[in-house]
């Protein structure tokens, strides 16, 4: 804010006296902003961007960015996220326009700093959206976050963040698959779990969480089928269900083996491998991993 006031004063002084005398909408917007009258500042800056005399000037968009950024900050704690998100988007567009008008200008660094702040709020809001299972909004916010980072910090490797976001997304899908809720189709949730973990593994095939959780997802599906089996089932149904369950355990195995290869001393993975092999009726191998687990426990 302090930096903005200094820049604003300098820019204000640069405006020709005659023009200043006419109290142009940008200057008036700035004055309203300094007086903390954000609604008035917004009204005036919108007049400016609608006026061909001002909408090609960098500072018009720069000030607009600040006004909307503050409107966003003021409104982000209220429940009406749509309004808050709209202010943020207006701020982002304004800063981007300011940079586009003068890519080498003195305001670029300040615009980028504001954009970085706004991008961090996008990332946090993407996480909040996932908290409430709002997957579409979460993805939109995360994609926007990535767009801004690509502009402000083009050298940054986005892979770790993308993996983190998708692991969280997959865990939310997984929760809805395990504990179905109204409005969410269980089958679709299950497909999404697999699709999102595959996305992570395409980015990093050595990601231990994705490998482990993918394995558990398949394994638990098999176990859930067994748990829900009626004891009255005849042989034909029993054979059919058993084949289906073995397919799921078989699908879990390569992911759990990969997780083991990545870290052979992880207890959960040893328990997982032992359980999968047991489910696949390979008792000898299951017991071998149990022994490894016991050895690990005794060494700790």
């Amino acid at each position: 804010m302090k930096r903005l006031v200094i820049i604003a004063v300098v820019l204000f002084m640069m405006i020709p006296g005659g023009l200043r005398a006419q109290l142009d909408p940008v200057s008036l917007a700035l004055r309203a902003y300094q007086n903390k009258d954000l609604p008035k500042a917004r009204e005036l800056i919108e007049i400016a961007v609608g006026d061909d005399n001002f909408n090609g000037i960098t500072k018009t968009w720069y000030f607009r960015g600040y006004i909307y950024k503050d409107l966003f900050k003021e409104s982000k704690d209220v429940k009406i996220k749509k309004e808050s998100f709209g202010y943020r988007e207006d701020a982002i567009e304004s800063y981007m326009k300011a940079v586009a008008l003068e890519p080498q200008g003195e305001l670029v660094e300040d615009c980028f700093n504001s954009l970085k702040y706004l991008s961090s709020t996008l990332y946090n809001d993407a996480a909040f959206a996932l908290d409430s299972n709002n997957f579409t909004t979460a993805q939109e916010l995360f994609d926007r976050y990535k767009e801004i980072i690509a502009m402000t910090n083009p050298d940054m490797d986005m892979t770790p963040r993308t993996i983190e976001f998708n692991l969280y997304k997959a865990s939310k899908y997984s929760q809805l698959f395990d504990n179905p809720r109204e409005g969410y189709d269980k089958e679709e949730m299950g497909q999404q779990v697999i699709a999102v973990y595959k996305k992570v593994l395409n980015l990093d095939s050595n990601n231990i969480s994705a490998n482990y959780n993918m394995a558990i997802h398949f394994y638990n599906q098999g176990v859930n089928i067994i748990e829900n089996m009626d004891y009255e089932q005849d042989f034909e149904t029993l054979f059919m269900i058993q084949a289906q369950v073995m397919d799921l355990f078989g699908a879990a195995l390569p992911y759990m083996k990969k997780a083991y290869k990545l870290n052979p001393y992880r207890k959960e993975t040893l328990v997982g491998l032992s359980g999968i092999y047991y489910g696949l009726n390979d008792i000898e191998t299951s017991e071998r991993y149990q022994q490894e687990l016991k050895k690990l426990d005794s060494n700790q």
Binding site: E164, V223, V245
Partner: peptide, 13 residues
């Protein structure tokens, strides 16, 4: 973001 770990169902299949 905290993504945790999926719990394994420990039923004797």
């Amino acid at each position: 973001m905290s993504y945790g770990q999926t719990s394994m169902n420990t039923m004797n299949t």
